[in-house]
Simulated assay, not measured.
Amino acid sequence: MIIYMDNKYKLFQILLVEDNQGDIRLAEEALKEIKVPNNLSVVMDGVEALSFLHREGRYARAPRPDLILLDLKLPKKDGHEVLAEIKNDPNLKRIPTAILTISSTEEDIIRSYNLHANCYIVKPIDLDQFIAVVKSIVNFWFTVVNLPPGE
C-alpha cells in the first residue's frame, strides 16, 4: 500500500530511541518489510533523543517524526524523562509515542500512561514476534489512525 496525502507521496518519519543494537537491527528489518513508506532515524540515549526532537546541534536538519518508538531503559536520560519532556512540549506532544520496552512492571506501565504515552508494548523475546510487533505498531499508526498534521 502506498499512502497518498493531497495527491503527494507520503514518506513517514519514525524515530527509534533504543540503545540495544540487536533491537535496532530487528526494527530496521521489520520496517523494510512493511508496505508503508518510511524513513527510520535512530538515537541511542535520552539526551540524544531530545536533541533530535528539538533539532539541536548535529540534528538541526532532523526530520520531524510522525511516530516515536521509545525504550524506557536508556542511558543518560531514561525513557520516562524523555516521554515527560515530549508530552510537556507544545510542539512535540501530539507526536504519537509508543513505549517499546522489556519492562512489564505495573509501575512502568502506569507511569508511562500517566505521562501520556500513546501505547505501551512489552518487547517479545522471540525474534519473529518482535518483528511482527514493530510491523503492527507502524501499520496501526500509519494506516488505521488519522494523525494530526505535523508542524
Score class of each variant (00 low, 15 high):
133 V>H: 10
96 P>T: 07
150 G>P: 02
24 I>V: 15
54 H>Q: 08
98 A>L: 09
62 A>R: 02
42 V>C: 03
87 K>D: 09
110 I>K: 12
102 I>L: 08
104 S>C: 10
35 K>H: 14
109 I>V: 15
57 G>L: 00
8 K>S: 12
71 D>Q: 07
9 Y>C: 01
118 N>R: 05
110 I>R: 13
39 N>V: 07
28 E>S: 12
40 L>K: 02
137 I>Q: 09
139 N>C: 12
148 P>Y: 03
112 S>W: 10
16 L>K: 09
53 L>K: 00
143 T>G: 05
60 A>C: 00
92 L>V: 04
80 H>R: 02
75 P>F: 10
100 L>I: 13
106 E>D: 14
115 L>S: 10
120 Y>Q: 12
78 D>A: 04
6 D>A: 14
95 I>S: 05
135 K>V: 12
82 V>G: 04
31 L>H: 11
48 E>V: 02
2 I>D: 14
70 L>P: 11
20 N>D: 14
66 D>G: 13
27 A>R: 11
23 D>H: 13
61 R>W: 00
85 E>F: 00
33 E>T: 10
53 L>N: 02
50 L>P: 02
65 P>C: 04
143 T>K: 12
33 E>V: 01
151 E>M: 07
11 L>F: 00
82 V>T: 03
77 K>A: 13
8 K>A: 08
29 E>D: 11
124 P>D: 15
42 V>L: 05
63 P>S: 09
11 L>T: 03
50 L>H: 02
48 E>M: 06
116 H>C: 12
115 L>Q: 14
72 L>Q: 11
74 L>C: 05
45 D>L: 04
122 V>Q: 11
126 D>K: 06
11 L>S: 01
51 S>A: 11
38 N>E: 04
63 P>F: 03
16 L>H: 08
59 Y>T: 00
81 E>R: 07
144 V>L: 09
14 I>H: 02
89 D>F: 00
128 D>L: 15
56 E>I: 10
129 Q>E: 15
5 M>Q: 15
101 T>D: 02
80 H>Q: 06
20 N>C: 08
118 N>W: 11
98 A>Y: 05
77 K>L: 15
66 D>M: 08
132 A>I: 12
138 V>L: 10
132 A>D: 15
47 V>T: 10
9 Y>A: 03
135 K>D: 10
42 V>Y: 06
96 P>G: 08
77 K>W: 01
36 V>N: 01
97 T>L: 10
148 P>A: 03
90 P>G: 06
119 C>P: 03
52 F>D: 00
142 F>D: 03
111 R>E: 14
45 D>Y: 02
83 L>K: 05
70 L>E: 12
20 N>W: 02
30 A>C: 12
147 L>K: 01
14 I>F: 01
96 P>Q: 06
30 A>K: 13
83 L>M: 10
85 E>V: 00
23 D>S: 07
6 D>N: 15
78 D>W: 06
74 L>T: 10
111 R>N: 13
26 L>G: 09
34 I>K: 06
31 L>C: 09
13 Q>M: 05
133 V>C: 11
70 L>T: 08
136 S>Y: 04
87 K>T: 09
144 V>D: 07
135 K>Q: 15
41 S>Q: 10
4 Y>R: 15
85 E>L: 04
19 D>Y: 01
63 P>N: 12
139 N>R: 13
107 E>P: 01
95 I>T: 12
